[in-house]
Design a protein around this nucleic acid. Sequence first.
DNA 1: ACATTAAATTCGA
DNA 2: TCGAATTTAATGT
Length: 240
Amino acid sequence: MQETIRASLWAETLTPKELAQVCAESYELHVSPGAHVAQAGDQAKGWYGVVDGVLIMTVCSPDGKESTFTGARSGAWFGEGTLLKDGPWQYNSTAIRDSNLICVPRDTFRRLVQTSLPFNHFLLSQLNARLGLFVSLVEYDRLLGPDARVARCLAALFNADLYPQAGCFIELGQEEIGHLSGLSRQRANEALHELERAGLLRVEFGGVTVLDLPGMRTYSGAAASGRKSRTPQKLETLTD
DNA sequence: ACATTAAATTCGA
DNA sequence: TCGAATTTAATGT
């Protein structure tokens, strides 16, 4: 666990003494696929880092429909927004693979916020990166066609600020990719093959390998406008 | 929605 | 403990 914390970007912002204390107070936990790390309404116990595995962040409508808005993979840290507000989780985070996490307890996190200016700088850039991500997500959802949405949503999971240690393979099934992009599994499948044809990625069993990340970030597909007839449906996609 | 194929699991030596 | 057979899950159309 020590190694994982030390490998994170924010560890560099702490003094050795502060870091040692954080390590001593934090603990590791394992979650199985389908298990919740956080559920909307629960009080946040801490700030979470993903050692390995994949989580998805979802929101639920009152009638039980669920929408996935982003994923978290190795190297990601999340929950700082909830901890700063000192309120309950506003979303769920669920493991979709066997995942190992680190929990930095709430009090430890709060102490860092109150005592370490460099740590606050890190938080500011992390929050800024996240804000940029969500602005982009809205943009994709409203302006781009399905193929491009898949490209950008996947590319978002390779954000260097949020997932510093990401490799080029992402273990994410086509059904989950569909959820992340707001598409059906079938449509996601077609989009992935279109992107593969364009040489941007390689479709594999249980995941995809990204070959051309800059290309993914700028991909806009063949048709972007004139899709009035397409999918007259709601914002979300999942119905569990 | 259905057919196909990869992966995981079981069973029998 | 190895591998064939079966079951289950992911993918392709």
